Amino acid sequence: MIDKGIKYLGYFTAFILSFLVLLVVYDATSRYFFSGGSIALQELEWHLFDVIILFGIAYTLKENAHVRVDIFYASYSKKKKTIINIISSLFFVLPFSCMIVYIGIDFVALSFAQNEASSNPGGLEYRFLVKSLLPLSFFFLALVAINEAYKDIKSLREDAKSNESKEYDGAIKL
């Protein structure tokens, strides 16, 4: 269920990216060819960029496309890679995500209480909506980290069981 939800989050992010590209083309065209433009449109571009980055984090982890030191990782055995993934998910990604969610909730609550808006004339209102993506996105990241660690632990157990049965079969053949 988590995998499916994060997959759709990735699709949503891809849609937002497509919309952002069209918005940037429109904004640049109106600014440079028609001497137009809008501060609200420029801020919307930044807000959409925030959506893409923040929601893309969980999808990237789910797809195992995140940044790591592949120079070393690529040469490791499957078992060693799995152990590294478990350790990094449970001891780095999960605590960091929980900390961001914990801190981010107060950050969003303060923004909501102040009804925070852009300080630029003609800028966007309701900045707390964009700020609310911070704890939400790291909540999704924590879910993915737990899910990936669970799958890796399950994989390690299955490999251990299959190795035990191979050893047992070999002992009988002797």
Rank of each mutant, 00 (worst) to 15 (best):
M1Q: 11
M1P: 13
K4V: 11
K7F: 15
K7G: 07
Y8M: 08
Y8C: 07
Y11L: 06
Y11F: 09
F12E: 01
T13M: 00
F15M: 04
I16H: 01
I16M: 02
I16N: 01
L17H: 03
S18C: 08
S18R: 07
F19W: 05
V21H: 05
L23I: 12
V24Y: 07
V25P: 05
Y26F: 14
Y26L: 11
A28E: 09
S30T: 15
S30M: 15
S30L: 13
Y32F: 05
Y32W: 06
F33L: 08
F34P: 00
S35W: 09
S38A: 02
I39D: 04
I39H: 02
Q42A: 13
E45I: 15
E45D: 11
L48H: 06
L48S: 08
D50S: 14
D50F: 11
V51P: 03
V51K: 05
I52S: 01
I53C: 10
L54C: 04
F55H: 00
A58G: 03
A58R: 00
N64G: 10
A65V: 07
H66W: 07
R68N: 09
D70M: 03
I71S: 10
F72P: 03
Y73L: 09
A74L: 11
S75N: 12
Y76K: 15
K79H: 11
K80S: 14
K81P: 10
I83P: 09
I86V: 15
I86E: 08
I87A: 13
S88D: 09
L90H: 08
F92T: 10
V93A: 05
L94Q: 01
F96E: 01
S97V: 00
M99G: 03
M99K: 08
I103R: 10
G104F: 01
D106G: 15
D106I: 09
F107D: 01
V108Y: 04
S111I: 03
F112M: 09
N115D: 11
E116G: 04
E116Y: 00
S119G: 12
G122L: 02
L124C: 04
E125Q: 13
E125M: 09
E125A: 14
F128L: 03
V130D: 02
K131E: 08
L134A: 07
P135W: 00
P135E: 01
L136N: 04
S137F: 00
F140M: 07
A142T: 03
A142Y: 00
L143A: 07
L143V: 04
V144H: 04
A145F: 04
I146M: 07
I146K: 04
K151M: 11
R157N: 13
D159T: 11
A160T: 12
K161R: 13
K161E: 12
S162P: 10
N163K: 14
Y168L: 14
Y168I: 14
K173W: 10
